[in-house]
Design a protein around this nucleic acid. Structure first.
Lengths: 229, 229
DNA sequence: TGATCAATATCGCAG
DNA sequence: CTGCGATGTTGATCA
């Protein structure tokens, strides 16, 4: 990893064109080949960057002097996108060996919601039974297919954040499922940890019920169940 | 901006919980208060971070030694999310004054595409006329409303990359607009610099025409127009 | 402040 | 390689 602090201007020509006027910035070159240019704000987001695979070409002293610059770096990738960093003054330049990172261990994410709800399908209503998770259809798997206390089929779409897209998706599934005489009529339930007002309106308008999932409660129930054994 | 290279382990407790085993990493502290932890890969994305506003508390020497660490940093925000960085060995530590950045100048984004197409609505067909950009509806503004050579109303949805969501969005607009007897029947056009195959299939199935926009050509036409004056 | 929408989104997985 | 969903998405704009 190489850290350069330099007063520089930057030009990017690729999926869009962009320009950065001259100012002091951090240029971060990682061992993966990536180059990112950071200001002293915008949190972790760089002003501009090039993702690997790409190649970095540093100007030799002569070239840079011709441009009146201390150095000119050209970063280019296979798609022909180009990042040109013109450094007028280099304030710091150091390199560090970091080695391969063991990586992040995450917990408490989204994939659990489906498992948890499938294991506790009674959360949706007493006497409800699971048909299966990831019920396959021609346009993709339905998160959960189950039956209510009367034996009527219910398709459940699960999201962490319930937005309008999710309602559209569930609508497409319902339309398809309702063509199957073995299943029809199929009701829909839109379940999420948080449901946006517009999504709720659209769902309700289409006769889809909304359920707000409480992750901690579901997990708590799970923990209770586990504790019994 | 402060740059620290240290062998460290990291724990995050917030919207999820995450842990990073000990390894050498870059810890980047910006003037905006943000802290990000970078490995030597993953391009510009940090392994873990805390966004401002947040406060950084560095351990005093005594505390750190008690834990057998060179230093322990605790970063906390108003929501109570917490990032704990335990540094076992500090390999580099430097600070740099960068000042306020003038910021990025972008070109070629969606807003610009909309302007260009509105100014050259004949690109869609001879004799076509603009009604207005950002035509307001109850569910949001339609990018462009125009009329074809026969005076029929056409709603245009513009995207940089045309995906299935954009087609859904346009479909909703069309459904609504077609309820207005002054406008109906309203046709749809899905315009983007790049249209994904699935989006094209869905659009075609719904009777929506697809148009691939050539940004350079549109801008070229604009430049020609400007050059005339 | 909250909702909505775009992004050089990034990233991972499955088909 | 493409599509699709999730993200501690982030960031900007507008009410």
């Amino acid at each position: 990893m190489r850290l350069v602090i330099a007063r520089c201007s930057v030009d990017y020509a690729g999926r869009l064109t962009a320009h950065l006027p001259s100012a002091p910035r951090l240029i971060l070159v990682k061992a993966d080949g990536s180059v990112s240019i950071h200001a002293d704000d915008r949190a972790y987001k760089p002003l501009n960057w090039m993702s690997p695979p790409c190649t970095l070409k540093e100007s030799v002293d002569g070239e840079a002097v011709e441009n009146g610059a201390a150095a000119v770096w050209t970063v280019i990738n296979k798609a022909g996108e180009k990042l040109i960093i013109t450094m007028e003054e280099i304030l710091h330049d150091s390199s560090h060996e970091l080695g391969v990172d063991p990586g992040l261990i995450k917990d408490g994410v989204e994939a659990h919601l489906q498992e948890l709800l499938a294991d506790r399908i009674e959360t949706l209503g007493e006497g409800w039974t699971l048909v299966r998770r990831e019920y396959p259809t021609a346009i993709g798997p339905v998160d959960i297919l189950c039956r209510d206390a009367d034996g009527a089929t219910v398709a459940v779409e699960i999201k962490r954040r319930g937005e309008i897209d999710g309602v559209e998706q569930l609508t497409r599934y319902l339309e398809l499922l309702n063509r199957d005489p073995h299943l029809a009529p199929v009701k829909g339930i839109f379940a999420a940890q948080e449901i946006k007002p517009q999504a709720r309106v659209l769902a309700t308008d289409r006769g889809i019920d909304c359920v707000v999932l409480d992750y901690d409660a579901l997990r708590g129930i799970e923990d209770d169940k586990l504790r019994l054994f």
